[in-house]
Simulated scan of single mutants.
Amino acid sequence: MTSPGSPSETRSLIIERLVGDSGEAAHVIGAGRGMAERAVPLLQKSLAGELGAPVTVDLRAVEVSRVPDARAYAGDTFAMTIVASPTSSDAMTLVIDAPAIAVMVCALFGGDPDLAVSPIERELSQIETDVATTVFQEVAQALNGSGRRSLELRLPVQRAMSGAEAKRRVLRDGAAVRMVFGISTPTDSGTVTVMIPQRILLATRGGAAGANDDQTTGSDWRARLSEEVMRSTVTLKATMPLARLTLGDLASLEVGQIIEFEETAQSQARLSARDKTLFVCEFGKLGQNYTVRVRHPYDAGQDFIDGLMPG
């Protein structure tokens, strides 16, 4: 085994091993570009369909970088989240700048795409942070992949952080591939920056992959594990909305006081498993047993919009 020729080379090698392996730049950029280019049409479709946002998504840059540089070009106002995987607590870091958030908020609420969007030069509101979280979810889903090449991200993503919390968050240093996606309308544009540590990228894209890897792996997984997966059990929970109360009403509640259900509560029960809502159901009773009848699949996008504009 050979050793580095100088103390600086030894130090660099030790630091690199501690904070993450790096690969040959051309190979890393090529693997990252291939991943990003496959994600662009998926992201374009998801934003246009699920969010109803008439925006254009394009790939601006793919380059080698360091994970802490994720916030370097986002300006003073931005939102950020970190996505974990089974092998890493920081498998992906996502940052969206204020112009991109403004574009998405405007498009989501029906703003005129031919008019300039008002810039955001303040702390993000709860609605703007929720919109950023939704964009992060779509970006992570598009980049996650499947089969042997999957990043195995733990989705859904955590709620985006912003302001002082996002600026103070310590990011573990390490070699990374930096992908920059543009989100734009005819008059405005912003960016979403994605940082994936090279140790994560090289683990799934390190070798030469054939054109049919995803297809072959998918068939292999279905053949070996599908039956076992279908036998696994989950705990179902049915919840029903109670009522909307002001903080003052809540503070004045007393023991024995009765709270009425809203008129539509019986038809708005939610069926969930592992903290993920699956169906909207109708609450009822059959003989001596309480029941829920499935009405339709839960639509997270519609529920998000309904929550922003109640009534």
Rank of each mutant, 00 (worst) to 15 (best):
R159N: 11
Q141I: 10
R149M: 12
E228T: 05
A160P: 07
V62H: 01
A176D: 06
E282Y: 01
L247I: 07
P7W: 05
V157Y: 02
G34L: 08
D21T: 14
Q44V: 05
S146H: 10
D21F: 15
A175P: 11
T233A: 15
E262N: 06
R148W: 10
G307R: 04
E50N: 11
S146F: 09
F304K: 00
M80Y: 09
S146W: 09
H27L: 15
P99C: 09
I196K: 02
A203K: 05
K45W: 13
S65F: 00
F78Q: 10
V62K: 00
H27V: 13
V19T: 15
L18S: 12
P119G: 06
E254A: 10
I14A: 13
S219Q: 14
D306Q: 03
D114G: 06
T191E: 14
F78A: 03
G5P: 04
E16D: 12
N289W: 11
D58H: 09
T291I: 04
V180R: 07
E165K: 15
E128Y: 00
P41V: 08
P4C: 05
G287R: 06
L236Q: 01
L59F: 07
K285H: 11
T191H: 14
G5E: 11
L202T: 08
Y73V: 13
T87F: 13
L18E: 14
C106A: 14
R293L: 08
T239M: 05
T93Q: 14
R11W: 12
I101M: 03
P119V: 03
I259M: 06
L51A: 07
V55W: 00
E128M: 00
C106N: 13
M179A: 05
G34C: 06
Q137P: 03
D220S: 12
G32I: 04
V19Y: 12
L242S: 02
T264R: 05
L202S: 07
D303P: 04
G287K: 09
F283H: 11
V170T: 12
K45I: 14
Y290F: 12
L242M: 10
A79K: 00
L236R: 02
L143H: 02
R38S: 11
M309I: 05
K45T: 15
I305C: 00
S226M: 14
A164R: 15
Q158H: 12
